[in-house]
Every structure is written in C-alpha cells, then in structure tokens.
C-alpha cells in the first residue's frame, strides 16, 4: 500500500513537472507577452517530429533538443515578423491568427509525414528500483531534466538582467523604453524563446505519446487551462497551475477515469475564469 502510494506520488510529481515543461513556452508567450498563441501545441508537435527524425537518422537522441529548438525558433521568428508584430501583439487578433497558424502547421506536417501515428522509441530503457518498486528509468530522467530546466530558468529569470528586463517591459512598457530597453527586439526574442521551448518540450514527451499531426491539440488545452488556474506571468503561477492540473489529472485518472479527470479540469478552469479570472498567482 505504501509502495503504491509512493509510485502514485511519483506519478503526480511526474505529471506536474512534464506539464510545467509543456506550459513553459506558452507561459513565456502568453504569460509574459499577452499573446494567446493557440498554435503552441503545434510547436510541441513539431518538436516531437524533430525527435522522430533524429532517431530515425540514427543520431543520438539528445541531438533532437537543439534541432527542435532551432526549427521551432526559426518558425517562431517568421511568425513573429509576419503575424504577431503586424497585429501589434494584440491578444484577440493574435488568437485568430495563431488559430490559422495551428491549422497550417498541422496540415504542413501532415503533408510531409502523413496522418499516421509515428512512434519514438524510449531512448533510455529499463527501470529503476526505488524502495522496492520499479519505476521506468526514462520517466525518472525526464523528471530530473524537467526539474533542472525549470529550476535553471527560474534562477536565470530571477537573476539575469534579461529576465528583469522582460518583467520590466511587460510591467511598464513606457518606462522600459525610457530606460533604454529596445522593447521591439526584446519582445521578438522572448516570443522565439517561447516557441523554441515548446519544441524542446516536444522532444521530451515524444517517446511517451503517439506522434501525429494533431497531437498538439491535447497539449494546448491542458497548458492553457494550467495557466488560467495558476495565473499568467509568474513562476509561482506556472508551478501552481501545472501542479493542480497535472496532479489532478494524474490522481483522478488513476482513481476514477481519464474522462472524469479531464472534466474536473474543465470545471475547475471554468470556476477560476468566472470567479478568479487572473488565476492564483497573477502578475502584480
């Protein structure tokens, strides 16, 4: 019983960490820049396909990470220049445009790889024995990597001037220009970072899920509502949202059914949108 609880606890942590990784790119783009990037899931999907290609080519799996970041970053650059900036980073207009973008990216990938499921092999097989319970090694590695990525980003965001400058630009764009921040360039780079992070998250989850052109849709829904519950633009909000939504999914899926877990997530999101539209930890 204790062992089961332990595994269950690990699963909750795993779900929360992975969801936080998946949300990260959206948190940057939507939480910091207020751009509702509905195509976020498609960037994850492209990252997953990058992993597939790298593995098929017989290259070491970790190479997929820079590859995905590069591909998604370049697409992000083009999208920022052609869609987001012309629409002045307006939430409503960019929502519509990225909706179209999501459609476009899905279809382009479908054009290249077909509709069928591709599977990416788990790069690190086997399992590890923890307190007498075996746990898949790849999941453990993922947890460690996700925790490291999130922690280092958190530290970087708090310490590096760039993190402070983004916070400054978002909190007070007028003053940011006044103190010499080139807000246009900073916004662009932030957007690209968000799409590249989505690509990296795609590489990480690729071995755990069927890779197909429509896979992004589930990710965007979960990511979106995790942010809604947690609150936009704060690290605490990101973690709170990912923990609540990810943990809830994990526990309810195991205890009742995935459908009720999903419905519970939607219900909580609706309640938050209604009564606390800025989430648990909103930007001040």
């Amino acid at each position: 019983m204790e062992a089961l609880l332990f595994t269950q606890g690990l699963n909750v942590v795993f779900e929360a960490l992975i969801l936080a990784m998946l949300v990260l790119g959206l948190a940057v783009v939507m939480g910091l820049l207020n751009v509702l990037n509905i195509a976020h899931g498609e960037f994850i999907m492209i990252g997953a396909y990058a992993a597939y290609i790298v593995q098929r080519a017989g290259l070491p799996y970790w190479l997929a990470i820079p590859a995905a970041a590069l591909v998604c970053g370049v697409i992000g650059l083009v999208v920022e220049r052609c869609l987001i900036r012309p629409l002045h980073y307006e939430p409503f207009e960019t929502l519509l445009a990225t909706w179209g973008l999501g459609l476009l990216l899905r279809k382009c990938v479908e054009l290249g790889f077909g509709r069928g499921y591709r599977s990416v092999e788990i790069p690190i097989g086997g399992s590890v024995s923890l307190f007498g319970e075996s746990y898949p090694a790849y999941r453990l590695v993922l947890m460690v990597v996700a925790a490291l990525v999130l922690a280092s980003l958190f530290v970087w965001y708090r310490r590096a001037p760039t993190g402070a400058r983004i916070r400054a630009m978002v909190g007070n764009p007028v003053l940011a220009e006044a103190v010499g921040i080139r807000t246009r360039e900073l916004a662009r780079n932030t957007f690209i970072t968000g799409t590249a992070l989505a690509g990296v998250a795609g590489v990480m989850v690729a071995p755990l899920t069927p890779v197909e052109p429509f896979m992004g849709l589930t990710f965007i829904v979960n990511s979106f509502f995790a942010l809604v519950v947690g609150g936009m633009g704060t690290v605490a909000g990101l973690f709170a949202g990912a923990t609540i939504i990810g943990g809830l999914q994990s526990v309810l899926s195991a205890a009742v059914s995935p459908t009720s877990a999903y419905l519970a997530m939607l219900l909580i999101s609706i309640l938050f949108l209604w009564q606390r539209p800025r989430g648990l930890f909103p930007r001040p």
Partner: peptide, 26 residues
C-alpha cells in the same frame, strides 16, 4: 534621459534591480 510623472519605477523589480537593470554587472 526622461523620468516620467506616473508609473515612475518598475513595481515588480527590487530597488537594486531598478537601478542595475541596464548594467551588465549588478
């Protein structure tokens, strides 16, 4: 240089960050 009348500092940055924001060393 311009110092505005309203919203004169970055509220969610510390005093030190407000000053060192545009300097490479902190």
């Amino acid at each position: 240089t311009y110092c505005p009348q309203e919203r004169v500092v970055f509220d969610d940055l510390t005093v030190a960050e407000n000053l060192s924001l545009m300097r490479t060393d902190r």
